[in-house]
Design a protein around this nucleic acid. Structure first.
Lengths: 221, 221
DNA sequence: AATTTTATGTTAACATTGTTCACATAAAAC
DNA sequence: GTTTTATGTGAACAATGTTAACATAAAATT
């Protein structure tokens, strides 16, 4: 033993990093403590110096996951320079993209298995910075300015979220073979979603850029 | 040993029955072979005479689950005596009720974990008797009769299914505390769903019975 | 600077899990 | 009545998460 690395230095972060690398490709259920110990070159029980259990490690991952998710989904909603519908579009698109790009993380965050952990995590930051709160605020903004129908904003928020969650889930859980179809489905879903929320008098046609390219315009009415 | 029950007679059915009793209360993940052997009074390896693995038992449960689900959701759609919108309403309501009454079965059928098993199961009966096919047929019926907009019926079917799946999932996965709220959410979601599908000229007000009682009328436009 | 305390690692052992194998016996086929 | 098949048992496996006793590096205290 030439090199002395009895003390690792940042084992906790390494465990988390390796765990996230793992669920980039495989489901969290298949993550085992042995995988973590092998990848860090430590013993199988080393992890218990940093997490009280496997579940606590996953709890930490969920917190980090929600931070990333919110940072991906919320900013477009808050960009008051742009028209409101564009902001909804970009955020909704980001929502679906997050789910498609990180299906295992998405399921970790929104699935049933870790519901209790999620509740504990969400209740802390429910007020301002969560994606749900951002969406609700944007809806209320639209209601005040007359673009959106005046109705219960909480219910409308859940319904929009529900649409996004439903479509995202069906897509990442393998209910549709064709990946191309997901774009078409998204455009249709978004149109439905906005049609249900918007005041009757509004007409809306817009070129809405997202990510690298320019997407086809979303027409409503 | 007075009674000789070395040969059980219907152990396979008993295993399935006990497994379904179990997921009536707890998640399928917590079902263990020991639970099954203890409940039947057999040894831990007895199950391997009837199922090649634990997964095959679950596969059988999924098949049975889809049969029950389809039998719960499809009949209202096929009842051509009633107005089409009423049939949609009843079926959609049944969908949500199934999920609420059998959350663990619902997740077993529509979750990601057993996606591969589900694909194998669904492909057999995709054509006629599945809930998805019934919904698609009802949509096409409505398009022919002029009640529904003429658009891609496959996409519309997925979008409706997506709405149902999204709301059902959010409700049973604990994203909303209040159970009462789910009724209000359902009514709103259904109104949105139908509004997006229906031709503009239609006006629709109906008293729609479901289950034991009479639900409040669904107004569209 | 020496000593004590704390943080972080190791190894060995546990019960539980799904699964397999050799064996036993009831039921069915011949 | 004998053979074959179906269905059960018990012992053993490796893998899992977890704990306990022990070891040592780093930090804190004197």
């Amino acid at each position: 033993m030439i090199k002395n690395d009895y003390h690792h230095g940042n084992l906790k972060d390494d465990f988390l990093k390796i765990a996230f690398d793992f669920i980039a490709k495989e489901d969290i259920e298949k993550l085992t403590l042995k995988i973590l110990s092998d990848a860090t070159g430590t013993s199988r029980s080393a992890i218990y110096r940093h997490f009280s259990s496997k579940e606590e490690l996953i709890e930490t991952m969920i917190q980090k996951g929600f931070d990333d998710f919110d940072a991906f989904v919320s900013p477009p909603l808050k960009d008051k320079e742009k028209p409101l519908i564009d902001r909804f579009y970009q955020s909704a698109k980001a929502y679906l993209e997050f789910a498609k790009q990180n299906p295992n993380i998405y399921r970790l965050l929104f699935g049933n298995k870790y519901a209790k952990i999620r509740e504990a995590t969400l209740s802390i930051k429910d007020d301002d910075c969560s994606g749900f709160a951002s969406l609700k605020q944007a809806i209320e903004e639209g209601q005040k300015s007359g673009i959106l129908k005046k109705e219960d904003s909480f219910i409308r928020t859940i319904l929009i979220w529900s649409s996004l969650h439903g479509l995202s889930s069906l897509i990442i859980d393998g209910f549709m073979d064709i990946d191309k179809l997901s774009d078409e489905l998204f455009e249709n879903m978004f149109t439905d979603m906005i049609s249900a929320s918007v005041t009757n008098k509004i007409k809306f046609i817009s070129n809405i850029p997202f990510g690298d390219g320019i997407l086809k315009p979303t027409k409503i009415f």
